[in-house]
Simulated scan of single mutants.
Amino acid sequence: MYLAVSNLFPIFVAFVLGFNLKRVYSQLNISMVEIISNACLYALLVLMGITVGLIPDIMDKLSLVGMSAFCLATASSLSIAVVLKIFHVRTRTVSGENQSSDVADSATFDIMGYIKDPLLLAGLVIIGFLVGYKSLIPNINYDYIISSLLYLLIFIIAVKLSYSGLNLREIFLNRQNIIMTCLTVIASYLGAAMAACFLPLSLSHSLAVNSGFGWYTLSGILLTKMGDPLLGSVAFLCDLFREAIALLLIPTLSRIGNGNIAIGVAGATAMDVTLPIIEKHCGVSYVPVALLSGGIITVIVPFLIPFFYSL
């Protein structure tokens, strides 16, 4: 519980400060804010790649347990996407919402428009990884820099949200958003359970690994401390792959009108690491939903990992 609170508190503070900036400083150049936001986002992605590249024996870990981790990450992400898409379609059908916009989107399909942003995001992470792996940069603890950039980004996102005029109360208390978060958790476990049938991992261990929901800085450490460093490596890589998959899918999903699915695929990272990506590509209206979903999942992660591991 302490781990969840210690991660949520600074994010909460940064968000509250940013959201209330409008009260003390009403004149703000939003275009300049957008430039700063993009600069911070791209720097954060490069630094994320660097920290992964600096991990000792990262290539050995990838070759040893990489396939199991990749299979679990892919199965969970696809399961979430499928379940939330079904939920999204059924909800629209019940409400009688017109789906002609999707048809229009498909008629103007632009392949470069779909792959440009995912390639850019992945390219920045890969560049950072190579810089770290080839030791082209000092091997120091970059956590403070990454955390500072992340909190600054969340502050900026909150500023833009305050200028958007959205009703946060309606979003946070929306029954559909709560259901979406619950379906995200259930669908993720369904995907992991199916993948476990083809992996050299027990069902309980596969579910324990899946319980990180993209929070790789916690899952690997927690399982290692519980006495299973190999499973900890699987969990670390699985959540790393889940974050990478989210980074690649969010821009594409947003272009086809599936912002809620993008948030679900992001898992716990929807409230921090992938929040800037969600805001940039899905729009500021999705930020409260991402904070709600990512926040709930983040709180339950420290409890779910030990629970499934002990089964």
Rank of each mutant, 00 (worst) to 15 (best):
Y189K: 01
A104N: 11
V125D: 10
I30W: 06
I154D: 05
W215K: 01
F213S: 08
S148Q: 05
D102Y: 15
I137G: 02
S6A: 05
G132D: 13
G132R: 13
I245Q: 00
S37H: 12
I245C: 00
Y309P: 08
V16Y: 06
G227H: 06
F155G: 08
G295V: 00
A73R: 07
L248Y: 07
K22G: 05
L201W: 04
S285F: 10
R169A: 12
R92F: 14
L218S: 02
L218R: 03
G227I: 01
R92G: 15
E97I: 12
S100M: 13
I30C: 08
D105F: 15
I86T: 04
A69P: 06
A104R: 13
N167P: 09
L237I: 03
G264H: 01
L275Q: 02
D117E: 15
I137W: 04
E34V: 07
D239W: 04
H205L: 08
I50C: 12
V273F: 14
L8D: 02
D239V: 05
I146E: 13
G220W: 08
T252I: 12
S148N: 02
L47D: 04
H281M: 12
C182G: 14
S293L: 00
R90P: 02
S188P: 02
L249K: 00
V125T: 12
F70W: 09
M1P: 09
Y286K: 09
G294W: 04
D272E: 10
L223T: 03
S206W: 02
T93L: 14
P288V: 00
I146C: 10
N210I: 04
D105R: 15
L47R: 02
T298G: 06
F129S: 10
Y42A: 00
N29R: 09
D105W: 15
H281W: 12
T217V: 04
S68N: 09
L207A: 00
P118R: 03
I296L: 10
A195Q: 02
S106D: 13
L166R: 13
S101R: 11
I50T: 12
D117H: 14
T217H: 09
L124W: 09
S219W: 07
L311W: 13
T108I: 13
V287K: 00
G18M: 07
V46Y: 08
I300S: 03
N210M: 08
H281S: 11
P200K: 07
E170D: 11
F109P: 06
L223V: 10
L119G: 07
G212T: 05
L44M: 10
L231C: 03
I140A: 13
A39S: 11
N258C: 13
